[in-house]
Structures are given as C-alpha cells and as structure tokens.
Write a protein that binds this DNA or RNA. Structure first.
Length: 104
DNA sequence: CAACTGACCTAAT
DNA sequence: CATTAGGCCAGTT
C-alpha cells in the first residue's frame, strides 16, 4: 500500500461528504481506513487539480485550517456559508450539528 | 541518510 | 475550558 493509494482513498471519502456537512481530518482518515493518518489528509487536499469538496474539511475544533495563504481560508468559509453551514462568533462551526458522522 | 515540518488528533492533567 | 505530551507518517530540506 503506497502513499498515493492512501491519498486517493481519502479523497474518495472527502468526495462523499454531503453538501452542507463538514468532516474533520481525523474523520476522513478514520473513514478511509487509516485512523492515524489525519495529517496526510491535509497533504492530499493540498494537491491541486483534484475535484473534491476540500472546503468541507475542517479541524477538530470546527475551525478553518490552513496557514492563511492567499485568503483561501476565506474562500472556504464563503463556500460553506453558501451551503448553509453557519459559523459562530468565534469562527467555529457547530460540529454537533454539521459534522458528517456515519459511524463512530 | 538524518532532521525538520506540518490543511492534525487524542488523552491526560 | 487551557495546556502539555505524545503519537503518526509522508514530504521536504
């Protein structure tokens, strides 16, 4: 099992996240079958050109993660709000309500 | 080839 | 709720 395969599997899971819902990096890794690869999710999403709803992925706090590069974090927030995902005053998403969990 | 880095997470304190 | 400590592993330096 090489790294590329793992990333592809994760991207599959990301692609399965329904509109208006969000998932954490850890969730994606877990659902993809790689419980400890949360970081690689970020690596996978960083790759340009993949047609996946990367904006539905946030960290376990429900916040936008990324090192503020060219304001893509704002784009992410915009896209989520456009899907009906609300942010609280602290810039966090109510994971209780929007988190996409199909099993725990 | 060793060391560092990072779109992270969890558990313990 | 805040902080710390540890884990995890592919990329990059």
């Amino acid at each position: 099992m090489n790294a590329a395969t793992i990333r592809a599997r994760m991207l599959d899971v990301v692609a399965a996240v329904p509109e208006g819902r969000v998932a954490t990096y850890g969730d994606i890794a877990r659902l993809a079958g790689f419980p400890r690869h949360s970081r690689q999710v970020g690596v996978a999403l960083r790759e340009p050109g993949n047609e996946v709803p990367w904006h539905r992925i946030v960290n376990h706090e429900g916040r936008i993660s990324r090192r503020g590069l060219d304001g893509s974090d704002e784009l992410q927030r915009y896209l989520l709000e456009a899907e009906g995902v609300a942010f609280d005053a602290e810039g966090r998403i109510a994971l209780r309500q929007y988190r996409w969990e199909m099993a725990r």
